[in-house]
Computed example of a mutant assay.
Amino acid sequence: MNNELISIPKAILATLLYLIGIELIGSWVLIAEMIGFKSYYKYYLLIQGTLQLIGVLIFIYFIRKRNFKNLIKKTQRKWYLFALVLGISFVFMQTPLKWIYNLLFGTEYYITYRFDGLPKFKNINMISAILMIPIGEEFFFRDYIQNNLQKKLNKIIAILLASLLFASIHSPYMNLILESSKENWHLFYLTIFGGIISGILYLKSKSIGPSIVFHMFWNIMVYIV
């Protein structure tokens, strides 16, 4: 096998294990029901996101040989500014992306920009949606997957592969497990482009920090709009 391809199956396997890990972590719901924690559904995303982040940090800790030193490397402030602007504007970029998706698949997705989502942030679960989940996903898919792919592959190919793997966890994979599941590929499609932006930020800034900021504000704007 070509040496440049060795990291690809490893990256795919790691993503599969990540996905399995997410589903296994979700089994805390069964424990909550067993111990009579009847209000667990009110904090579902908060608990799930916290457990996912802990799992990723444990993984990163051992991958880095039990060291968290320079976990978020210093970079120029301009990259954080770019990340902020791109995170806020990505929701608007999705309009032409949806036009293309609708043209290709004969769907009718569109965004109505009402900007009425601020009340959603009163829900404690939003902490997970805009903080814990983005941090965990960026550390895994950018700082681990993309970082390792970049060492053996062309940088553009590494970004594209990492973005596809990132999008894969947002794919309708449950359709393969549950007959009742009727999800589509819309979120997978959009997430590819978000992953590419995040990947470019990671490559150019040489730090995971801007990628996390981009992902956080991307999620914030999704809820606001």
Rank of each mutant, 00 (worst) to 15 (best):
K98C: 03
T75L: 07
M93G: 12
F68E: 06
K65V: 04
I100N: 03
L71F: 04
I100C: 07
L97C: 02
F68P: 06
F82T: 08
Y101F: 05
F68W: 06
T75W: 11
W79Y: 15
F90A: 14
Q94C: 02
I88L: 11
L86C: 07
L71Y: 07
N67F: 06
F68M: 05
F90S: 15
I100F: 04
W79N: 15
L71Q: 06
P96K: 13
A83E: 12
R77I: 15
W79E: 14
N102V: 08
I72F: 11
K74M: 12
Q94W: 05
T75N: 14
K98F: 02
K73L: 01
L84M: 13
L103C: 07
I88N: 02
F68I: 06
W99D: 13
A83N: 06
N67V: 04
L103F: 09
F92K: 08
R77Q: 14
F82I: 05
V91W: 03
V85I: 14
S89T: 15
T75R: 06
Q76Y: 00
R77D: 00
Q76T: 15
R66M: 07
K78G: 02
L84W: 10
M93K: 09
K73S: 11
M93E: 11
L81I: 09
Y101P: 08
F68S: 05
M93C: 15
N102W: 07
N102K: 01
P96Q: 15
V91D: 05
I72Q: 05
Y101S: 01
L86E: 12
N70K: 10
P96G: 14
Y80E: 13
P96N: 15
L103N: 03
K69C: 10
Y80H: 07
N102M: 01
L97A: 05
N70C: 02
K69L: 04
F90H: 08
I100L: 01
K73Q: 09
N102C: 08
L71V: 10
R77S: 14
P96Y: 00
K78Y: 00
Q76K: 15
Y101A: 01
N102Q: 00
T95C: 00
T95R: 08
F90Q: 12
I72E: 12
I100W: 09
K78D: 10
A83V: 07
M93F: 14
L103V: 03
N102F: 03
K98Q: 10
K73M: 01
L71N: 01
L84C: 13
F90R: 12
K98W: 02
S89I: 12
W79L: 14
R77A: 13
T75D: 15
I72Y: 08
M93I: 14
V85C: 02
R66P: 01
N102T: 05
L81R: 05
K74A: 15
K98T: 09
K98N: 11
K74N: 15
F92I: 01
I100P: 09
K74H: 13
S89F: 09
K78P: 07
K74P: 09
N102L: 05
N102G: 09
I88K: 01
V85F: 13
K69H: 06
S89Q: 02
K65E: 10
L81N: 03
N67A: 07
K98R: 08
L97P: 04
I100V: 05
K98E: 12
M93R: 10
K98L: 10
G87D: 06
K78N: 04
V85H: 02
L71P: 08
